[in-house]
Design a binder for these strands. Sequence first.
DNA 1: TAAGTGATCTCT
DNA 2: GAGATCACTTAA
Length: 169
Amino acid sequence: MNKILNKNFYKQDTLKVAENLIGKYLVKDDEAHMIIETEAYDGPHDKASHAHKGRTDRTEVMFGSAGLWYVYLVYGMYWMLNIVTSSKDYPAAVLIRGVKKFKGPGILTRELGVTDKFNNKPADESTGLWIEDREKEIEEGNIKRTPRIGVDYAKEWKNKPYRFVLKKD
DNA sequence: TAAGTGATCTCT
DNA sequence: GAGATCACTTAA
C-alpha cells in the first residue's frame, strides 16, 4: 500500500524526518525514486542553515508549515530540493541529496525537472511532486550518519552528523 | 583541482 | 549599486 506522506510526518523533529525519509520514494508524476541520502537543517541556531541569520525573502518558506517544498538555486546552476519540517515559525528543512537513480542533489533536480516553480508549494498531488511510503522497510542499522557536505563555513556545526545515507539496499 | 554561474545578502 | 559568498558539478 502506497501512502503519501502528510503533514503529520513532516511535523516531527527534523532529524527524525531526515532519517525516516531514507528508503521512502520521491514521486514525480508517474516516476518513483527511492531516497538514499538526506541532510537536516534544523533551527535558527544551526549555522549551516540559510535561516540562521533570520527571516529573509528566500528563507521565509523554512519558517512556514511542514510539508512545503523549499527550492532554491546555488552556484548559479543547480536547484536544491528541500522539504520543510517541524513547527510553523521554527525554521527547519531536510535536503533531499540523492535518490537511487540519480546521485547528487543538483543532478536529481536537473533530471526530474525540479525548479523554483515548486518553491513554497505543498508536497502532495496538487503539485505532482510528493514523497510516499511503500512496503519496504529500512532497518535502522542500514542507515549511516555522517557530517554534512559543503558546509565548512559553519564552524562548530559543520561536524554535526546531520547527514543520512542508505548503506545498501 | 579549478572554474563556471547567477541569486542573495551585506555593505555603501 | 558593488562586491562577496555559496547546502554543486564537470572536465582535466
